[in-house]
Amino acid sequence: MGEKKKKIIKTIKIDADKCNGCRACEVICSAFHAQPKYSSNNPARSRIRIIRYPLKDIYVPVYAGEYTAAECMGRDKYVVDGKEYEECAFCRASCPSRDIFKEPDSGLPLKCDMCEGEDEPLCVKWCRVDALTYEEREEDVEDVEAPKELDIGLESLAKKYGAQEFMDAVARMSMKA
């Protein structure tokens, strides 16, 4: 067994009820990530986006998460308190199914990096109505090396078809390639 290790968990708490839709968070995020820093801004490049339908009272700040090469098999659509949110509204992925969390020209994916190098996430700092607040806490975690995804996949195939069958298949494929 591995030994216990400390890990910092960073959480931005989003109180969507407090969001007034001002998009200051988008402004500062895109300015911070400009090259050189703060030399330009463009909310379309922000790693936080406000899904905003004022007449339906919908205000959802969403953070950019992982890039995904393919969209999900199906989409989700939430109804909360009688308000119907747009498809995939709460998803963080930079995904082929939509245009948010991508550089507007190159289409390269964007991902929130918690404002690396700053004391506090800048979107939190610029959100003056406390819709965004920042928390840090320490957690104990087991220090075991997590198995690689490919290893898990291969192991399960070997189990299913038998090791020899599996090796043959790999050999056939490498001859074709």
């Binding site: 007034n20 839709g21 998009r23 200051a24 004022p54 007449l55 205000y59 109505v129």
Partner: peptide
């Protein structure tokens, strides 16, 4: 009054969405 709202890049929330009974919401 459904919510206090701001203009672009401002924390002041000087406006509001208003939903009068039976009528569409406006700002």
């Amino acid at each position: 009054r459904t919510r206090l709202i701001s203009c672009y890049n401002c924390p002041m929330t000087c406006g509001a969405t208003i939903s009068p009974p039976g009528l569409p919401t406006y700002m």
